[in-house]
Amino acid sequence: MLNIADTLHGWCRAARPFALATVVGTRGSAPLPVGTSVAVDEDGTAVGSISGGCVEGAVYELCRQVLHDRGAPQRAWFGYSDDDAFAVGLTCGGELDVLVQRVDPGTQPHLAAALDETVQGGPAAVAQVVDGPDELLGRTLCVLGDTDSAHGTLDGGPADRVVAAQAGALLRAGRTARVEVGGDADTCPERLSVLVHVHASRPRMLIFGAVDFAAALSQAGSFLGYRVTVCDARPVFATEARFPYADEVVVDWPHRYLERTEVDARTAVCVLTHDAKFDIPLLRLALGLPVGYVGAMGSRRTHDERLRLLTEAGVTEERLARLRSPIGLDLGARTPEETAISITAEIVAHTNRGTGLPLSHLSGPIHRDRALVS
C-alpha cells in the first residue's frame, strides 16, 4: 500500500473511506511485487496498479463492491486466462493473490500516522493480516521510526508484540515481506500470515575516490534511489561541482570517514581509488562492517597485490571472500558511464541474489520471491 502513500495520506486526512486491493502473494512472472496496491474511494476514483493493466478492471469492480457492501475483506486469485486474458487474466503467465478490504480512516488512526511518516520520507512499517481468522483478516498495526513499538492492534495480545518485532526487523532491513506467526501459546493460538509493508530510509552508497568513474557511479546510484556520498582525501578533486548527483561530498581520509559514518546491511561501499595507501586501511575496515556490498576497482594484478596486503594486515579469508574485486559485472565496459552500469548491475544482482546471467540463458520464473522471515 505504500506505493500509493501520497493519495492514501490525503484520503485519511479527509476521513474518506476507501477500498484497498493488495497483492499478498505471487507465483511465476507476476508483473508487480507483493505489497503493491490499488485503492478506490467512494467517488470511484482509483489510484495505483497491481498488474500493469491486465486485471485492473476486475480489481476495480471488486473494490467498488467491497466498499459499497461494507462487508468482510475478500480474496481474489488472478492467473492466466486463455479465453479472456486481457479482461481477467495475466498475459505474462504469472499469478496474483489479492486481498481487498474496506478502510475507514476514522477507525485506524495508526494507519494515517504511518502514511504521514512515509510521505515525509521517514521510516515506517505497516503489518497487515492477510491469512488467519476471519475477524483478524485485514487488520493492521504500524511501527514508526527506529523502535519496535506497535501503533494499533491485531488481537490485543502477544501476537501484537511478535508482529511488531518482525515489522521492526524488516524495517531495519528495508524489505517488504510476509511473516508467519502464532500457532502456539507463547504468541497466539491462531496462526497468522502477516504482510509487512516497509518504507525505509534511502540506502547509502559510499563512493571512495573522486575520479571520473565516481561521477558516473554517483549519477547511477542516485537514479537507483541511493543516498550517495563521495569521499576523497584530496580537496582539489572532492568538490560539489564535480559531483552534482551526490548527496554529499566529503574531504577526509576514506577509512577515517567510514569509521564515523552510519552504515547498515543495505549500504554499498565502492572503492575506486586503486591506491594502496587509501585502499588497504579502508577495505580492512569495510570488510569487517555489516554492510551489504564491498567492491574495489583495479586490474587483476592490482587485485592480487591488494589481497596480499590485506592478508598481511590481518584480514581473514572469510572476510576477503566478501570483497567484489575487480568491481562490477563483465559487460565489456570501457567508459565511466558503462563502468557505472557494470558496478550497479553487480550491486542489484548481489542484493537480489541474482545470477548476473542473461535471462535468455536461464529457465524458470524471471522474478524470484525473496526469502520470507519466519
Rank of each mutant, 00 (worst) to 15 (best):
D186A: 15
H197R: 00
L170H: 11
S193R: 01
E180K: 05
R191T: 09
A220P: 00
A173L: 13
V198C: 03
F208D: 03
P203H: 08
A200K: 12
H199W: 00
A185R: 15
L171D: 05
G182W: 02
R204T: 07
A164C: 09
A214K: 11
V196W: 06
V194I: 12
V211G: 05
A214H: 06
P203N: 12
L171S: 08
R178S: 15
H199L: 03
P189H: 03
L170R: 09
T187Y: 02
S201H: 05
V181F: 09
A210M: 02
A215Y: 00
D184N: 15
E190K: 08
E190A: 14
Q219Y: 03
H197Y: 14
R172N: 11
A177S: 15
Q166K: 13
A165H: 14
V194R: 08
P203F: 06
A165T: 15
L195A: 11
L206M: 07
A210R: 00
E190N: 13
G221F: 05
I207H: 01
L195V: 10
F208I: 09
A173S: 12
M205C: 14
R178W: 01
S218E: 02
F208C: 11
V194W: 13
S218V: 02
F213M: 06
A200N: 10
E190V: 05
A214I: 04
R178M: 10
F213Y: 06
A214V: 05
L206Y: 00
D184L: 15
H199M: 04
R178V: 15
E180M: 05
A215T: 07
V211S: 06
